[in-house]
């Protein structure tokens, strides 16, 4: 096979993997939007906060150490122990559940029946609050995330495919990052478990009922507040997963919150209310931007991915304003 053809396959494969990483972020947005109609601006910061909490717990960091030291003149930073990765993940999950309860009690409860834009503004405030709170709790220095995830190109795949290239083509075998393979597995497991949860559990059905019609759900005795806590807790869990996958690449730092920017075109394309849409949208964006960068990028100076993802999403928007899998809004007068 020609090297160029094989490189195209490699780009498509890596685009799919990148798309999965985008989908992981987009999933959190979809969950909250679907259940409450809120576009959660704080989703990226939730991923950052979860990852910071995970590293902090794992490394035995004292939360609010800077504040404590400044107030009491102490010099404590660590408890002196480390926590196994799995335990740290579970404890982080507990923190994210507590966070969901607090968000419902302090923010959402007071904004029931308000316009969506008010709720959106509230999440902007929440994002800034969490940025500051994260720094205050765990410090703003770069943190290394190590929970034993594999990284680096798959040697097995490279060796298995190196012979596919024509003689003298200089083809080194197909490259796929092992971390991306894990991320794909995790994303699949997430989507399957979320689908099963929403289809076959009582809470899941209640969640769908709330998503379909708040008023109707309330009239049959479903607690909106309880559902919001559950949804925000699940979104917190998804944010943690996204934070782990992205944080494993770059370390945990403020920039992690910017991964939300990668999810926006995915949401535009896949629709704000569809979990499969988040996955399919992510895959289309991932492959589309990588292929464009590979084929057209060199002719126009490169660095096309950021803007091309939005252009691609807008093209889809022209034909399907509600996104590929979004609900069509019909307003009758």
């Amino acid at each position: 096979m020609s090297a160029n053809f094989l490189y195209t396959i490699e780009v498509i494969l890596n685009g799919l993997m990148a798309g999965v990483m985008y989908s992981l972020v987009a999933l959190g947005f979809v969950l909250i939007f679907k259940a409450s109609g809120i576009f959660n601006y704080a989703q990226g910061v939730m991923a950052l906060f979860a990852a910071m909490t995970l590293v902090g717990i794992q490394q035995g960091q004292v939360p609010f150490a800077h504040l404590i030291n400044a107030a009491f003149g102490t010099k404590i930073h660590h408890f002196g122990w480390t926590v196994p990765a799995l335990m740290a993940i579970l404890l982080t999950l507990v923190v994210m559940i507590l966070f969901a309860i607090l968000v419902e009690r302090i923010v959402l409860k007071h904004l029931v029946n308000q316009e969506p834009i008010i709720l959106f503004m509230a999440t902007i405030g929440l994002a800034y609050f969490m940025e500051g709170m994260g720094d205050l709790m765990w410090g703003s220095e770069l943190k290394t995330l190590d929970i034993g995830l594999p990284s680096g190109g798959s040697l097995w795949l490279e060796e298995a495919t190196v012979g596919w290239g024509a003689e003298g083509s200089g083809f080194y075998g197909l490259f796929i990052d092992k971390l991306d393979i894990v991320a794909t597995g995790v994303a699949l497991a997430l989507v399957i478990s979320l689908t099963l949860f929403s289809q076959y559990t009582k809470t899941g059905r209640a969640l769908r009922a709330v998503a379909d019609d708040h008023q109707a759900a309330l009239s049959v005795g479903i607690s909106l507040r309880k559902i919001w806590v559950i949804v925000w807790a699940i979104a917190g869990f998804v944010a943690m997963v996204a934070g782990i996958m992205w944080g494993a690449k770059s370390g945990v730092q403020f920039s992690l919150s910017l991964i939300a920017l990668k999810a926006l075109p995915v949401l535009i394309l896949g629709g704000f209310t569809s979990i499969p849409g988040a996955i399919i949208g992510g895959l289309i964006i991932g492959v589309g931007e990588k292929l464009f960068e590979f084929s057209i990028g060199p002719m126009i100076g490169g660095a096309t991915e950021n803007w091309f993802a939005y252009v691609l999403a807008l093209v889809f928007l022209i034909f399907r304003p509600q996104g590929l899998f979004g609900d069509k809004i019909i307003e009758r007068v």
């Binding site: 490699e10 890596n14 990148a18 992205w246 920039s255 910017l258 590979f294 490169g302 660095a303 991915e305």
Partner: peptide, 23 residues
């Protein structure tokens, strides 16, 4: 060869696949 990376630079798969190809 110049290979640009857009801000903030969290996703650089394309750039490094290009480097892997061109060595």
């Amino acid at each position: 060869t110049g290979i640009p990376v857009d801000h903030p630079g969290q996703e650089q798969k394309s750039q490094w696949l290009q480097i892997r190809r061109e060595r």
